[in-house]
C-alpha cells in the first residue's frame, strides 16, 4: 500500500477507536453506580475525545483534501470508519463497560508507548501526550477489573461473563495488514502482531489477580479496521451525526 494512504488509514484507525469508545463511555454520564465513578468515566471519555481531535486532525492533514477532524467524525458513513469492533460493542452493565475499557487500555497503553518513538514526529508528539492519559486509564481499569473479579460472587460472575463475551473481539487488535507492514517498514508504527506478548503479560497478570479465567478460544471477529462493522456502529453514527446531517453547512 502506498505510504500516504497507509498513513491516513492508520490515523483514522487510531482516531476512530478513541472517537467511538469515547462516545460509548460518555453514554454513562449521569448513570454510573456511584458519583465518583461517574466523574472518573467522564474523565476517560474526555481524554479519548481529546485524542480523537489530534488523530483525526492529522489524518485530515495527511489526506490533503481539506477535511477537518469534525468533517471526518461527523460526515463519514459506517464503511469509512476504521475502528476496532471491540469499541463499538454496546456498554452492557458497568462491569462489561469496564472490561471493554480494560482490554482496550492495555492495548492502547502499549501501542502509544511504541508510537512515542515513531519516525513521524507528528505521531510521536500525539503519542507522548496520549500515553500519559492511557497509563492512568489502564491503571484505573485494571484496578476495577481486579476489584470486581475478586469481589462478591455476583460481581465475579458478571465479570467472567463480560470477559467471555468480549474475548472474540480481542484478536482484531493484533491482526496486521499491508498498510501496517508499510508503516512498520518506514519506522512509523509498530506491527500489530508485535504488541501481543506485552499485552498478554499485562492482561494475564490482571485476570489472575481478578480470579478470572482467560477464555481458551482464539477466535477473532474482524472487519472493523477495514470498514466492515457490526450493526451497532450505524446507530452510534445516527446519534452522533444527527445535527450535522440534518442541518448541513450550519456552524455550531
Amino acid at each position: 500500500m502506498e505510504k500516504n494512504a497507509a498513513l491516513f488509514q492508520f490515523l483514522c484507525r487510531m482516531g476512530d477507536n478513541t472517537l467511538v469508545l469515547g462516545h460509548r463511555v460518555s453514554e454513562w454520564c449521569g448513570h454510573a453506580p456511584v458519583i465518583e465513578e461517574d466523574i472518573a468515566l467522564a474523565n476517560t471519555a474526555l481524554d479519548l475525545l481529546g485524542q480523537t481531535q489530534l488523530w483525526l486532525e492529522l489524518a485530515g492533514t495527511v489526506e490533503g483534501k481539506g477535511r477537518s477532524a469534525d468533517d471526518l467524525a461527523f460526515l463519514r458513513d459506517v464503511w469509512d470508519f476504521r475502528n476496532l469492533l471491540l469499541v463499538e460493542r454496546p456498554n452492557g452493565d458497568f462491569g462489561h463497560t469496564l472490561l471493554r475499557q480494560f482490554l482496550f487500555d492495555a492495548w492502547q497503553n502499549i501501542i502509544l508507548a511504541r508510537l512515542t518513538e515513531s519516525r513521524d514526529q507528528r505521531i510521536a508528539e500525539i503519542a507522548e501526550k496520549a500515553a500519559k492519559e492511557a497509563a492512568y486509564h489502564v491503571e484505573r481499569s485494571s484496578g476495577t477489573v481486579i476489584g470486581l473479579g475478586d469481589g462478591t460472587d455476583e460481581s465475579h460472575r458478571r465479570m467472567q461473563a463480560a470477559l467471555d463475551r468480549l474475548w472474540p473481539y480481542v484478536g482484531e487488535m493484533f491482526c496486521g495488514d499491508a498498510a501496517d507492514q508499510t508503516l512498520a517498514a518506514a519506522g512509523i508504527a509498530p506491527r500489530p502482531e508485535d504488541l501481543r506478548s506485552a499485552w498478554d503479560a499485562h492482561v494475564n497478570a490482571v485476570l489472575d489477580a481478578a480470579t478470572l479465567a482467560r477464555p481458551d478460544s482464539d477466535f477473532a471477529h474482524k472487519g472493523g479496521r477495514d470498514g466492515t462493522h457490526t450493526e451497532h456502529l450505524g446507530y452510534i453514527l445516527a446519534d452522533m451525526q444527527f445535527l450535522q446531517r440534518a442541518y448541513p453547512g450550519a456552524a455550531w
Binding site: 460518555s26 454520564c29 461517574d38 466523574i39 467522564a42 480523537t52 467524525a73 461527523f74 450550519a250 455550531w252
Partner: peptide
C-alpha cells in the same frame, strides 16, 4: 446529558461532557 451523544462537533461534545461532569 440527553445531548452528549448528539453534540454537533468534537469541541462542543467535550465542553458539554466536562460541564455535566462538573455537575456530578
Amino acid at each position: 446529558g440527553n445531548w452528549i451523544t448528539r453534540a454537533p462537533t468534537l469541541e462542543r461534545k467535550a465542553i458539554l461532557l466536562a460541564k455535566v461532569q462538573d455537575e456530578a
